[in-house]
Write a protein that binds this DNA or RNA. Structure first.
Lengths: 337, 337
DNA sequence: ACGAAGAATGACAACGTTGTCAAATAACTT
DNA sequence: AAGTTATTTGACAACGTTGTCATTCTTCGT
């Protein structure tokens, strides 16, 4: 198998003794092909190492074979994870994975979307936070009957494929991780309000506080914006208070890093005098020193799964289900061992 | 202009009163079309908002309209810059920008390349360090007559488009920046040997030392590998020596960050007791605290330019020149103000 | 065992470009 | 002004698929 040469459907059809159209049907998972022929064709194709010509497919079918990921969160780690996952699913099925930033801050982002959609037809869409919660965007996509998957949406939509982790439970797990290690005075550093995930993580935080009978007045809640910078300021707020916080839970890794650096500058040892946990398991969290204990979500798997489900949806014109929850894992590292 | 509807060459030809083929010629910058007709066609096309159908083009011409960037340096900032630059040039010309990692560490990377090239035909290639110095890769690409641009190659190749900055001069500039601020005891933290850029930056460093009559024995040279981790260890080496180094030049930002964090942990203030400069002007260098003084190269422009030149090369079957040098700039920030 | 209905198959024309090659036109030569 | 040559144009057949629709096989009910 895996020969070169530009084989065409013609070649396969000839060798298998069937018509061109039957081969085409097999490769499109179309119904109405006897299993026996299907196997025959697949066998011959594999033997000869045939790969369909995407351009011809696009031209004839008027499909684009493009799956696009619209995002507005410039976290490169996260994006790379999604892209890799998408690509894995796509390349198996002869689709293209594409990513495009949609800046929600710009007033005209909806026009940009429409513009993009008319200029570059796409067969499926994946949205990540915060766009997975943008009703206007989702509406436009639904209006065009484009299959759509939402990664970690704040509210699940019934017409989309929803792929998510239990953010609240994850938040609770992280808080309990701190509590289990003896910390009773905790701080939560929140992210941007436009990301509903931050609020859910916070809810989990408070649920853990409640469940373990800790006093709310020993807790602190500091508003951040997911940036390293806001981690610095958060630490300053912490230091100014006399709450004697020893456990910090930042809603993402960048803020955790910011907190740790500010702490180091202030001469406070991490984790000896203060433990910090993050969220996202980013590359920098691993590279920091101390490396940061963080919650890992299987973002690459989630993206791959989303892409796979969208492709199924395109192929079958029907999707089985719309809710898929993924498991998370705490990566224990030096910042809170 | 910019109407919707799927216009075809046919429509334009009709409205302009010329043949389909003439329109095709105009859109391919083919020679042998009277300027008058060219303008006419272009005008009509613009008025109607025509956009060529890429699939049909690919199918008929057997070109892929794909420009691919092969890389093996997982620095996301750098990659994103290159990708954005490529995409800008590509989208103007109806090309696709694609990126693919080639892991030089894997013994089979050459097979992976060949595999990729036969599976996914590409019209042009852009290589970034360290791949822009890999002779085997370059040879395979030349063998297939695929136009190729090298970004920051260690040695320029005459059959490729070479796009670069003067690494040695840049290194010298950074070292002199430290010297100008009164530092006389300097350290250089090198990167991986496989990146020739690191050696050139070091050469610049020593040139500056020489030019300013500083004593070589007051200097330190510490081997790193571009990772944050190696920045930590570098600082430790620094601290152990009794050279009393006050100015550190790291061959990239990650190592500069590592150095600073290690310094903070050791209770050494940056920049008060020690100044640190980096290289690359990465997002994290800007976000750190203190933010890091770093050398910015116009990587996005360089990539856009490379893509543009490759497309010209494809179109005209001939390239004008092969060496293009870009200017750099020191971004002065808190780590060495 | 005979239709009727449904499932499986194939012939052939799209799809929107570019390549080829011949025809028409312009630009020189002498 | 006629003969050459170069430039410009266009007709028509690819390119490798899928859509449509007619045809042939199955299966099932009676």
């Amino acid at each position: 198998m895996a020969q070169d040469k530009n084989l065409t459907i013609q070649d396969i059809a000839q060798k298998a003794g069937v018509s061109i159209k039957t081969v085409s049907r097999v490769f499109n998972n179309s119904p109405n092909v006897r299993q026996q022929k299907r196997d025959l064709v697949l066998g011959v194709a594999k033997e000869l190492g045939y790969r369909p010509n995407i351009s011809a497919r696009q031209l004839a079918s008027k499909r684009s074979f493009v799956l696009i990921h619209f995002y507005d969160n410039p976290n490169m780690d996260y994006l790379a994870g999604i892209y890799d996952g998408m690509r894995e699913a796509c390349s198996e099925q002869g689709y293209y994975a594409v990513a495009e930033r949609l800046k929600l801050k710009n007033r005209s982002y909806k026009d940009a979307l429409l513009d993009y959609l008319t200029r570059n037809p796409v067969d499926g869409v994946i949205l990540s936070p915060p766009i997975s919660d943008d009703k206007a965007v989702i509406r436009e996509i639904e209006k065009r009957d484009i299959p759509c998957a939402l990664i970690s949406p704040g509210v699940k939509k019934r017409n989309c494929i929803n792929v998510f982790i239990d953010e609240k439970m994850a938040g609770q797990k992280m808080a309990e991780f701190l509590i289990d290690r003896g910390h009773t005075k905790l701080a939560f550093i929140s992210g941007l309000d436009s990301h509903s995930a931050s609020a859910q993580r916070e809810a989990g935080f408070w649920a853990a506080v409640e469940a373990h009978g800790l006093k709310r007045k020993d807790m602190m809640r500091i508003g951040g914006d997911f940036s390293m910078q806001s981690g610095f300021t958060a630490f300053n707020a912490l230091a100014k208070s006399n709450k004697n916080i020893t456990g910090v839970f930042a809603a993402n890794d960048e803020m955790a890093i910011g907190t740790i650096i500010a702490a180091l500058r202030a001469g406070k040892k991490v984790p000896e005098e203060m433990s910090v946990v993050g969220f996202d398991d980013s590359a920098f969290a691993r590279a920091m020193w101390p490396p940061i204990t963080s919650l890992a979500q299987p973002i690459e798997d989630m993206a791959k799964f989303s892409a796979q489900k969208i492709i199924d949806w395109i192929d079958t014109k029907d999707r089985e289900q719309s809710h898929y929850e993924f498991a998370t894992e705490i990566m224990v590292r030096g910042s809170c061992p």
